[in-house]
Design a binder for these strands. Structure first.
Length: 285
DNA sequence: ATAGGCGCCTGCTGGC
DNA sequence: TGCCAGCAGGCGCCTA
């Protein structure tokens, strides 16, 4: 569920409430996540003070003192919230860390359990983790030349390329569709058929769409909430995602849906034509 | 090496 | 009302 804007929102809301606090107790449920939460992590976390909360792609990084690092991924339905200790614990809560006042807790809830967690005992191991994952650049740091070359070298369609975290980190199904609409590119267009002007439109569209979504604190369709429990608002501004059959906000043609890279894909057949119009194909950069 | 398909989980919706 | 298919913000593993 959560893509970059949702994860960024969680991190921004978590930061002021977590940095400087100490974890004094950790409770774990027996249900396993995608990457099992190890029993050995509890004692390693207890007593540690949070030094920073950061994001890399869709990963949340909690930096602790003693050079310890907790990595969290929210999968499809993950929720990471700060709750008052006396608040009832919601079903599907998988682990709870009590903060040093004793009055508040950091809680991880994940209905479908596609989320994962990792504990890294040093900065070097943390770097190694992301190196192994081959996580691509942040979408706001995309180099023009890198981006065009990356698209031009793949035989997959643009939608599949956007979802590949090795090419660019943080884009998921919603924002891939929204960015392709913004860039007026057909999601099924092959990467190798992409010219420099199109790649550049897409590069800028990705950053614009993600920034707008962050301003709205992400999108809440069914499960997503920020660290404070508040929902996002960006779902109200979707132009194609989940808008099948509704008129395109630009040209009024009905939004269509198809399956690409195994994922539901939404686009405007007129604004994002499979074959680019002659006029735009011949236009200089 | 690369690309597509499936499976992991739970919950909700719509059609019969 | 009940049942069943299809769907869902992700990603790792397997196969060709």
């Amino acid at each position: 569920m959560p893509e970059l804007p949702e994860v960024e929102t969680v991190v921004r809301e978590l930061r002021p409430r977590l940095v400087g606090r100490r974890l004094v107790a950790v409770q774990v449920s027996p249900l396993r996540l995608r990457q099992k939460w190890s029993r050995r992590w509890g004692p390693l976390l207890v007593g540690r003070r949070v030094q920073a909360v950061r994001r890399r792609g869709k990963w949340i990084i909690v930096d602790l003192d003693h050079d310890r690092h907790l990595l969290l991924h929210l999968g499809m339905t993950g929720q990471l919230t700060i709750a008052r200790t006396q608040q009832p614990v919601a079903r599907h809560t998988h682990w709870i860390a009590t903060l040093n006042s004793g009055r508040e807790q950091l809680r991880y809830r994940d209905i479908r359990r596609f989320g994962s967690a990792a504990f890294l005992p040093s900065a070097a191991r943390l770097a190694g983790f992301f190196h192994k994952a081959q996580l691509g650049p942040e979408p706001f740091d995309l180099d023009q030349g890198y981006w065009f070359a990356s698209l031009a070298r793949t035989r997959r369609c643009l939608k599949a390329a956007l979802l590949d975290q090795r090419l660019v980190a943080g884009v998921g199904n919603i924002y891939a569709d929204e960015a392709l609409f913004e860039a007026r590119l057909f999601p099924g267009q092959l990467g190798i058929r992409t010219n420099r002007a199109q790649a550049e439109r897409l590069r800028q569209a990705i950053a614009r769409v993600l920034n707008r979504a962050i301003e709205r604190r992400g999108s809440s369709i069914r499960n997503y909430i920020g660290a404070s429990g508040r929902q996002g608002d960006y779902q109200r501004e979707f132009r194609v995602y989940g808008q099948t059959g509704k008129p395109c906000p630009r040209c009024r043609a009905p939004i269509r849906r198809l399956r690409l890279a195994g994922r539901s894909t939404h686009f405007c057949p007129r604004c994002q034509p499979a074959t680019p119009a002659r006029a735009s194909a011949g236009r200089p950069l």
